[in-house]
Design a protein around this nucleic acid. Sequence first.
DNA 1: AAGGCTAATCGAAACGTTTCGCTGGTGTCA
DNA 2: TGACACCAGCGAAACGTTTCGATTAGCCTT
Lengths: 360, 360
Amino acid sequence: MEADETFREMDEIRRRGRRSNAPTMIDVARGAGVSIATVSAFLNGTSNVSPELTQRIEAAIATIGYERNAIARSLKTGATHTIGLTVADIRNPFFTDVVATIQNVLGRAGFAVMLCSSDEDTAKQDEQIKLLLERMVDGLIIAPAGEDEVMRRLVKSTRKPVVLIDRMIEGLGVDAVLLDNTEAVSEAVRYLTGLGHRRIGYISGTPNTTTGRDRLEGYRRALAAAGIVLDPSLIRDGRFREADGYRAAMQLMTLPERPTALFSANNLMVIGAMRAIRDLGLTCPADISVASMDDFVWADIFGPRLTTVAQPVEAIGEQAARLLLDRLAGNAPPEPKVLTLRGRLMIRNSCAPLTVSQSA
Amino acid sequence: MEADETFREMDEIRRRGRRSNAPTMIDVARGAGVSIATVSAFLNGTSNVSPELTQRIEAAIATIGYERNAIARSLKTGATHTIGLTVADIRNPFFTDVVATIQNVLGRAGFAVMLCSSDEDTAKQDEQIKLLLERMVDGLIIAPAGEDEVMRRLVKSTRKPVVLIDRMIEGLGVDAVLLDNTEAVSEAVRYLTGLGHRRIGYISGTPNTTTGRDRLEGYRRALAAAGIVLDPSLIRDGRFREADGYRAAMQLMTLPERPTALFSANNLMVIGAMRAIRDLGLTCPADISVASMDDFVWADIFGPRLTTVAQPVEAIGEQAARLLLDRLAGNAPPEPKVLTLRGRLMIRNSCAPLTVSQSA
DNA sequence: AAGGCTAATCGAAACGTTTCGCTGGTGTCA
DNA sequence: TGACACCAGCGAAACGTTTCGATTAGCCTT
C-alpha cells in the first residue's frame, strides 16, 4: 500500500515535472549563491561580473554539469542561430557540394543549418519551408524544386531573409545566386555544332524552373547560331532525375532518325542517358556524342570521360552564405542582390566529330 | 518636434517589443473572443471545442494569418520534433543516400532533421553534437567521424536516444546499425586472391573507426585464408578521403615491387586511387586490378566498371530511423540493439586474373 | 561631509505556448 | 427537486531564459 502510494507520488512529481531532467540556470544560481541574472550576465558576457562571483559560477556549472537551453534562449531573444536550407535533391552531388560550403561558412559564423531535401517535389518543398519557418529559423536558403503559390506566399510573408540558389523565382524580391545557364548550355551546344552535329537531342530539366527554361533557351540559341532549325521531337523532359533521363534518352535514341549527339541539362540525367546508351548496345562517342551540365569529380577518370559544363559550386555556396549573413547583420542595401556566375566548359572525350556514316 | 517624439515612441515600443512581429495565439484568442486555452485546445485537438467556437477560431486564424511558434511550444512540451543527424562527410554519396532515406521515414513520422557534416574531424563532430543537444533535439543519429572522450561523455550524459550508423563506438550502450565490414572486405579480397593476386595493396580508412579497423581485419583474414603472409608496406592510410586515397595509391604503385591489385576501403579513396593510376600512365585492369568498398550508381556504366561491395544504403537508413522512432515512442526494450547488415559483392570488370608478365 | 557617479548585483517581468484545476451550465437519475 | 456527473471553456501558473530598471556600496569631487 505504502510503496504503491510512494510510486504514485513519484510518478506525479515526474509527470508534472518541475524540470524534465536537465539542470537549469536556477540550479547554477543556487549553487553559486548568486541571482540568475548574474549567471546570465556571466554566460553572455553582457555585463561585468566580479572575479569572485565568476569563479563561483564557473565552479557551480562544472559540478552541476549545466548546459544552456537554446530553446528557452531563442524564445526570449527571437533568434535561433539556425538557418533553414532546402535543396531540390540531396543525392545530387551538385547540391551536396554547395551545401557543404554553405555549412562551413555559416558554421564559422556561429549558425547551425537545418537541411531538407524536397526531392524535386513542390508540395514537399512547401511543407518544409513552412516547417522551417515555424521552427523560427533566422534565415532561409532555398534551391527551389519549382514555384507555386504556396511558396510564394510563404516567402513573401516572412520577414526573415531568404536567398535563392541555383534557380530563380521572379517577383519574390529576395537575394539570389545563379548561373548564367543560357550561356553555359549555349557554349556546350555550340561546341557540339562545331563538331558538325546537326541532330542534337536535348534532355531537358523541369520546365517549372528557371534552370530548366534558361538551359533550354541556351540550346535554342546555339542551334539558331548554327542555322539549324529546331526539331521539337529532339527535346525530351528528363525532370532532372536519373530515371527520367534514362527514359528520355531511350526515346531519343530509338527515334526513326536518331540524333548524333545528346545534351543533358544536368548531371543526374546524363547518368541515366549513358545507361540507356549502354542498354541499347551503343557506345559513346563512336555512335553518339554526349555532353552535359554539371561536372563530376570522377568525370576525368572514368570512361567515356564526359564533356561537361562545370558550375563553380564553392563560389555559389560561399556567396549564398555571405548574402544571407549580410542580411542577418543588417548591413545590406534594401534592394535584392542577384549574382550570376559563369560555368566552365570541360572538354573531354565523350564527343566526337560527326562521321560520314553517321550523317548518312 | 512632435514627429520626433512620435518616432522615439514607436522606436521604444518596437525595442521593448511586446511582440517582435508575428501574430500570436493571444491575438487569435482576442480575434475570436475566446480564451487562449481554448485556442490551444482547438489547435492540438486536446479537448472538445464547440462547432461555434471552432468556426470563430478558424476564421480568426485565417484573417490574422497566425502560425504557431514551435519554439515556445517546444519550451513548454520539452519536445522539438527535430532529430539531429551528423555524418562524417556529406559529400560522400554513401552518406547522402542514407541521409535521404532517414529523412524520408523520419519526415513521414513528423520529425524534421537537422543535418551536420563533421568532415571526418572529431573536434568538429563534438562541437556539432553539443550544438544539436543544446538545441534540444529529441534524438540523435550519428555516423561518427571517430571517437574521443568528449563525444563519449556527451552521448553518455544525454537522456535523448542515440543511434549510431556505419561506425560503432563500444561501451556507449546505444542502438546501432552497421555493416559486417570484416566479411564484406574479406569476400572482396578473397575474390582477388582467387584471381591469383598475391601482392594486394590496401588503402585503409581511419584506424580511429571500427569501419577502418574491421575492414582491415577482413583484408588480413582473406590473405590468411589464401596463405599469403601480410606485407605491412602494402597497407597505406587513405583516411577515407579522396586526396589521401590518391596519395596512398601513389605510394603503393611506386613501390619497388608494386602490387598487382588494389583494394580501397571506401568509395572516395578509390576515386583518388584511380586518379593516381591514370596519372602514373597505367591502366586498370590491364596493369592493376582495383576493387573497393561502396558502390556507385554510375559504376556499372563508366569504365573501368568498378568491382565493389555495395552496402544496403536504404536498409541502413530505414533501420536507423526505425530504431530511433521506437525509442522515442518508448516501446523498445532497454538493452541496446545493434543490427548488422551484409554487403553485396558486385563483380564487374576492374579486376583481371594475374598474368604471367605481372607475376614475373 | 554631502552629493553624485560608477560598477556590480539583483528582482521581476517578459517571450508564446501548454496544461492543470476550477467554474458554471446542462442533462440525468433517483 | 435535489444530487450528481459531465462538458466546454477559462484563468493562471509554468517552461528556462534575457533584460530592464532598481538597489546597493564604494569612491571621487568640491
